[in-house]
Amino acid sequence: MKPFAYVKAADEKQALAALGRERGKVLPLAGGMDLVSLLKDRIATPDRVVNVKGLDGTITATPDGGLRIGAAVRLVDLIAHATVSSQYAALAEAASETGTPQIRNLGTVGGNLMQRPRCWYFRNEEFPCLKKGGARCYSVDGENQFHAILGGGPCHIVHPSSLAVPLVAFGAKLRVVGPRGEKEVLAEEFYELPERNLYGETALRPDELLTHVILPPAKAMKSATYEVRFRSSHDWPIAFASVALALANGTVSDARVVLGAVAPIPWRSPEAEAALKGQPANEATAIKAAEAALAGATPMTQNAYKVQVARTAVKRAILHAAGVSA
Results as ranks from 00 to 15, higher is better:
residue 2 K to R: 15
residue 3 P to K: 13
residue 5 A to Q: 15
residue 7 V to R: 15
residue 10 A to V: 14
residue 17 A to V: 08
residue 20 G to Y: 06
residue 27 L to K: 03
residue 29 L to W: 11
residue 30 A to D: 00
residue 30 A to R: 02
residue 30 A to S: 08
residue 34 D to R: 06
residue 36 V to G: 02
residue 40 K to Q: 12
residue 45 T to E: 14
residue 45 T to H: 09
residue 47 D to Q: 15
residue 48 R to T: 14
residue 49 V to N: 01
residue 56 D to W: 10
residue 63 P to C: 12
residue 65 G to E: 09
residue 65 G to S: 11
residue 65 G to Y: 12
residue 68 R to A: 13
residue 73 V to A: 09
residue 82 A to C: 03
residue 84 V to G: 02
residue 89 A to H: 05
residue 91 L to W: 06
residue 111 G to K: 04
residue 112 N to I: 01
residue 123 R to Y: 01
residue 126 E to G: 05
residue 130 L to G: 01
residue 131 K to W: 01
residue 141 D to G: 11
residue 141 D to T: 14
residue 149 I to H: 11
residue 163 L to H: 01
residue 172 A to W: 09
residue 178 G to L: 07
residue 180 R to P: 04
residue 180 R to A: 15
residue 185 V to Q: 10
residue 189 E to W: 07
residue 189 E to T: 10
residue 194 P to N: 02
residue 194 P to D: 01
residue 195 E to R: 15
residue 201 E to W: 02
residue 203 A to S: 15
residue 207 D to K: 09
residue 214 I to R: 14
residue 221 M to Q: 12
residue 222 K to P: 01
residue 232 S to G: 14
residue 251 T to M: 14
residue 254 D to R: 15
residue 257 V to Q: 04
residue 263 A to E: 04
residue 265 I to K: 06
residue 266 P to F: 05
residue 266 P to D: 00
residue 268 R to A: 04
residue 284 A to L: 10
residue 288 K to N: 15
residue 290 A to P: 08
residue 299 P to C: 12
residue 301 T to W: 08
residue 305 Y to Q: 10
residue 311 R to L: 07
residue 318 I to V: 12
residue 320 H to R: 14
residue 325 S to M: 09
